[in-house]
Amino acid sequence: MTSTAPPATGARTPWEDLPHTVRAAVAEVLGGPVVAAVSQDGGFSPGVAARVRTVEGQRAFVKAVSAQSNPDSPDMHRREARNAAALPLAVRAPRLLGTYDDGTWVALVFEDVEGRQPHVPWRERELRIVLDEVSALGRALTPSPVDAPPVGELQAEAFQGWHRMIEAGDTGGEGRGLDPWIARNLHRLAEVSDPWVEFASGDTLAHGDLRADNMLLTEDGVVFVDWPHAVRAAPWFDLLILLPCVRAQGGPEPDEVFTGHPLGRDADPEGVTATLAALAGYFVRQSRQPAPPGLPTLRAFQRAQGATALDWLRKRLGPGLP
C-alpha cells in the first residue's frame, strides 16, 4: 500500500515573526539570545516549531503559538507543558526546559533531540523499532505516573462522531460525499462504538496521538514528542491509535500488527472493535468539518486515517453489515 495521507503540516510561523517578548523569554530560559533558528516540518501546528542555537552554542527546540493563529492551540501547548513536566525521566521524551505564557502567546522550550521522523511511506525495519518502543512505553507508564485525565473524559465528545453525524442529519444523500456503506450502517456503527469507554479505560498513561510526525528515531531507539493529548487508558490504546495512521502512510494491515503485538494480543476483541468504531467515527466526522485556521492539510489527513480505520473495522465486523 502506498501512502494516502497528505503531509502532516501546519502553516508554520517563522521564528523571526515571534514578538520580542517571546524571544526574550526563550533567551532567558537558555541563558543567551538565539542566533540561529531552523523551522521544522511535520506536525499539525500553525505556530513556531524550530530548532534554535544561542550565541553560547546552547541548543533547544522551541514551540510557540498565539490564539490569533488558532484559538485552540495555546491551550494544547499548556496541556503539553503540564504533561511534559510530569513525565518521569525513564520515559523517552524531550525534557521541558522552560515555558512562557502571557495569555496570548504560549512558548515551550525543550531539549533538542538528535533524531529524525520515520520515513513515510513506512519502512519495515523502522516500524518494527517503533512497535517495540511502544511496548516499552506502555510498560514504563503503567501504572500512570501522571495525573492525566481518563480517556473517557478527554475523548467523551470527540469519540461520539457517529452519534453527532446522526444528530446533525449528516447521513448521506446526494452531494453529501458520504461513503454509501457508512450511510447504510450509520446507526449500527454508533451502537458498536457505544461501549468503548468501558473497554478503553485503564491506568496506563497513553500518549494519545501517536503517528510518524510525533516521534523521532535516534541512534538508540525512539523519542516520543508532543504530549498534549496524554490520557489514562488501556495498555493497548496507543497501539490502536497509531495503526490506522501507519496504514494510511504505507504501512501494513492494522489487524495483523495489532493481534501479533504484545499489547494487542491480550486485549478484549469486543473492546478493540468498539474503540476502533469510536475512533473511525471521530476521523470521519472531523474530516467533514471546515478546515481550522492554519492547518491546511488536517482534514485530508483525517480523511485518510478514517478510511483506513473503517477498512480495519469492516474486516473486524465481518459480513454482518451490508
Rank of each mutant, 00 (worst) to 15 (best):
T9K: 11
G10D: 10
T13D: 08
D17P: 01
L18Y: 06
H20T: 15
E28I: 01
V35G: 03
D41N: 11
P46Q: 13
A50Y: 00
A60R: 02
F61E: 06
A64V: 09
A64R: 08
N70S: 09
S73T: 08
A81W: 06
A85R: 14
L89D: 15
A93E: 11
R95P: 03
L96H: 08
L97Y: 00
T99S: 13
V106Q: 11
A107R: 07
F110P: 08
E111P: 01
Q117N: 13
P121Q: 08
P121M: 11
E124S: 15
V130F: 09
L131Y: 07
L131R: 11
A136K: 15
L137S: 06
L137M: 14
G138E: 07
R139W: 10
P145Y: 08
P149C: 12
Q155V: 02
A156E: 14
A158T: 05
F159G: 10
M165G: 09
I166R: 14
E167L: 12
A168S: 14
D170I: 01
G172I: 04
L178I: 13
A190K: 05
V192M: 04
L210H: 05
L210G: 08
D213T: 15
N214T: 10
L216A: 08
T218R: 12
G221S: 12
F224P: 07
V225E: 04
R232S: 07
A233I: 02
P235G: 08
W236L: 10
D238K: 07
L240A: 11
L242Y: 04
L242Q: 04
L242K: 05
R247M: 09
Q249Y: 02
G251I: 05
P252Y: 03
G260V: 06
H261Y: 05
D268I: 05
G271Q: 05
T273E: 12
A274K: 02
T275N: 03
L276C: 01
L279N: 00
Y282K: 09
F283C: 13
R285F: 06
A291L: 09
R299Q: 14
A300R: 14
A300W: 02
F301I: 01
R303Y: 02
T308A: 12
D311I: 01
W312S: 12
R314G: 04
L317Q: 08
